[in-house]
């Protein structure tokens, strides 16, 4: 079936089977590689994208469900270079392998949109569905806090 939607502010369409997940469609058919394929069962968060402005796990969504929707991935967020959040992660050396980074960036971006000065607890809560195997989370949370302390710049 044919599905069309807005992907990172461009109108795109694809031909897919009903059983194709959005994660696979993005990565394999549309060449959008920032959402990663981790657990594929909704547990790890590395496939997180924004669907109509809200974070969702793209491994638990079918491609055919997004007809007419608006999808944003990291590629879309950083159309004019790294965002202040990404810079903060970079400056703080917040990640090691970086596999969890796409989900963390999306989740933290969504949080900061609703709450420009979250405290540590709120950041933890917002990032909770994203697993990181390398860092122990502290540098990731610290980087977001730092950004907040610096007024989001």
């Amino acid at each position: 079936m044919k599905v069309s939607f807005t992907l990172n502010s461009e109108t795109r369409w694809l031909e897919c089977q009903p059983n194709q997940t959005l994660l696979h469609a993005l990565r394999e058919q549309l060449g959008v590689k920032s959402p990663k394929c981790g657990c594929e069962r909704g547990d790890c968060g590395t496939c997180t994208i924004l669907l109509d402005g809200k974070s969702i796990k793209s491994c638990l969504v079918l491609a055919c469900e997004v007809e007419g929707c608006e999808i944003t991935t990291l590629e879309g967020l950083m159309q004019s270079g790294l965002t202040p959040l990404q810079k903060a992660f970079l400056d703080q050396n917040a990640f090691q392998c970086g596999f969890c980074a796409p989900g963390m960036v999306i989740a933290a971006t969504e949080l900061l949109e609703h709450n420009s000065s979250p405290n540590r607890g709120e950041i933890e809560e917002a990032l909770a569905g994203n697993l990181c195997r390398c860092t122990g989370y502290a540098p990731i949370i610290d980087a977001v806090l730092d950004l907040v302390d610096n007024g989001g710049k």
Partner: peptide, 12 residues
């Protein structure tokens, strides 16, 4: 609702 899974699941 706040205890249900994580934000990305609660959104869906």
């Amino acid at each position: 609702a706040q205890t249900v899974a994580s934000v990305a699941v609660r959104n869906r």
